[in-house]
Amino acid sequence: MFEITLDNNGQVGKSRIVLSGEIDISTAPEFKTKLHELIGDGDSDIELLCEDLSYIDSAGLGILVGALKKVKMHHHDVYIYYLRDNIKKLFEITGLDKVFILEEAI
């Protein structure tokens, strides 16, 4: 079970997205569809709030990379906040901590 919601809080030029639950092979297709719906053509920075994201697998990481490529085409970035230690470890193992901008706080 996972949830993805847009929480822009009135900000212009940024897509603030809250992720929670588990992103695995059974939820990855829905995650991909909804993420791309929310980021549109990728013409803004993306902020992913992951405080309640408890699990993500390689399929989910691949989807995040796809989103990053989309916004990079418009010279924007993906910022990831509040990753739990077990998930941050996966970003470090795969080298994605150097690709995304990981932040402890907004």
Binding site: S58, L90, I93, T94, G95
Partner: peptide, 15 residues
């Protein structure tokens, strides 16, 4: 195979 496959291999080997 593929990008997520490379991620998976790195994760499995490391852990």
């Amino acid at each position: 195979e593929g990008e997520s496959g490379e991620f998976a291999k790195a994760i499995i080997s490391s852990l």
